[in-house]
Design a protein around this nucleic acid. Sequence first.
DNA 1: TGATTTTGCTAAAACGTTTTATATAATTGT
DNA 2: ACAATTATATAAAACGTTTTAGCAAAATCA
Lengths: 340, 340
Amino acid sequence: MGKKISITSIAKHLGISTTTVSFVLNGKAQEKRISDKLVKKVMDYVEEIDYKPNSLARSLRTGKSNIIALIVEDISFPFFSAIAKEIEEKAYKNGYRIIYSSTENDAAKTRELIEIYQDKHVDGYIIVPPEGVEEKINALRLSGKPVVVLDRYLDNVETDHVLVNNYDSVYSATHYLIDQGYKNIAFITLSSLQSQMLDRLSGYEQAIQDNNLRPIIKEIAPVDSLEREKHLLSFLERKRKDIEAIIFSTNYICVSGLKAIKKLGLNIPEDIAIVSFDDYELFEMYTPAITSIAQPIESISENAINLLLSRLNRRTADVDKSPQKIVLSTTFIPRDSTAH
Amino acid sequence: MGKKISITSIAKHLGISTTTVSFVLNGKAQEKRISDKLVKKVMDYVEEIDYKPNSLARSLRTGKSNIIALIVEDISFPFFSAIAKEIEEKAYKNGYRIIYSSTENDAAKTRELIEIYQDKHVDGYIIVPPEGVEEKINALRLSGKPVVVLDRYLDNVETDHVLVNNYDSVYSATHYLIDQGYKNIAFITLSSLQSQMLDRLSGYEQAIQDNNLRPIIKEIAPVDSLEREKHLLSFLERKRKDIEAIIFSTNYICVSGLKAIKKLGLNIPEDIAIVSFDDYELFEMYTPAITSIAQPIESISENAINLLLSRLNRRTADVDKSPQKIVLSTTFIPRDSTAH
DNA sequence: TGATTTTGCTAAAACGTTTTATATAATTGT
DNA sequence: ACAATTATATAAAACGTTTTAGCAAAATCA
């Protein structure tokens, strides 16, 4: 039930100054010419009482919190939780903690989140941004905090980002289907202006055009998963005759599609072939196994956190050093759902 | 490019004291008898310059960080990431932020994590504990920080916990199989002394005994997922003739089992019936659909965060009020994998 | 020896709040 | 008209660090 333990109480107990204790604790003993004898004395006592500095006080004084904000669309999505795992691990090893939240793709919520994290003086941000947070992110940058944008990019926002070659991936996946002999290929996506979604769509459209295969069959599915399933059910009911293959722009849309397809009793790939963007354990195990475009989750995470850490370690001045644009390749995994 | 903005600069600018500003900002104007005129003046200016208090300074002064630590086994497991989502949402609405990490079931790492969060002065903890952190958690409690244990319980640790009736769930799932006519029922689990695992095993064993159905066929699978699949493959190869049904103690063990079963070309449920503890989207979609014991994720999360928030809102004194033990019911979801 | 440098250490300010105790002015009561 | 209350606002300490600037003693130099 002793006194509260702090750098001050340690100093008092040892009859020295807090300055000295602080220097020793921060490994500046050499530099600040504290004698070895005194260093040992301090260290021994600190060890003995198992002292741990109060990081709040330290943060207040230094302006660094050693906290990184991770703002994703939905932490419960396998893609994002896998990223969260990797990023946390690497950040941890570098002395940083992660504070997270889900935006649900809501711009207002995201802006609010960012404000709160600013108050908390987090040191850096990894953000999967919805549309409509451009100015906020630019403001962040201007305030000197490093920001890494993930999974998509924002026009007019000069910041580091790491994402995947969405356009090329879908282009060549579409091409693959065409090579397999499929002609009427549909693309199912969400009503979203997010860059990754638009790029995937463009990849599909361009591949169709380049192969003189009209028409483009683009279908917009609802965001809500129950509604989406219903929507896809009726879509397929109407169009089953006109479509030989479908590319889904995300794995969860694909899951809805699979449910609808099952309900209609359609056979994959005989009646309809399937490709999904973003792999999922389910796709490997499904009958038949679903062809997918797998994102390099580990590499995405690693690049993102490395980028951020390197900014954090550099001196403030070069925050406005030219932003890094990292674009990673996906892996196309052909499975039974596209076996002609 | 103005001066740095703080409560002090506001006070200076308005020619009043920081005390007054602080009172106004904290809604204590009434109580502290600050005149309406002055309140308005402060509020207007605060609005104008869009001032946000520095939460580090506030935390240092008050000893409250408004941060909750969420320590789970692995944030990338669907079960835990779903919980993380729910908990974050509710915490957010109550002014708390969540800082997370994965223990990988490593006791040393977990203890280290807890220490770090102590330094950060987080206000409370939600922990999915590995074995071997009992004393640490007790120490936390003694230090006055509320702790809610999730998913499992620790002997000799008097703290709130919320978990699921593991024993009963497996007991009745086993009974269900027996009712369906299955006799030689195996139980596959990990080499773990964690309460939830032991309880699930006991439920199985007791049900077998109560129905005079020997032998108990308990198999321990490796933790590593590749090894596990290999292990299960050879296990099934040897025992396929002796086993009519399998209960897996977690969903990821079940996934390994399904892979092995597929490789061996066994038919579910004709050759072998399957039940998994913990539902998974994959199980619903698999062919055949896999019977499972679903945990009430939302309710688990809600109870955990509510428990913690209520402790946080109460005065410190009753931290040692009798711990709450919340036990929730699972939902048995019979599917085709057990259809005799 | 006396001047200079090096060594070893520390006082005190600063980070931005919250809160206790108290001062002064205005109002009320008698 | 004077005492007692009440209303309004503030000074200053505290939270626990880091860090700048500087002091005194010891060592080196000429």
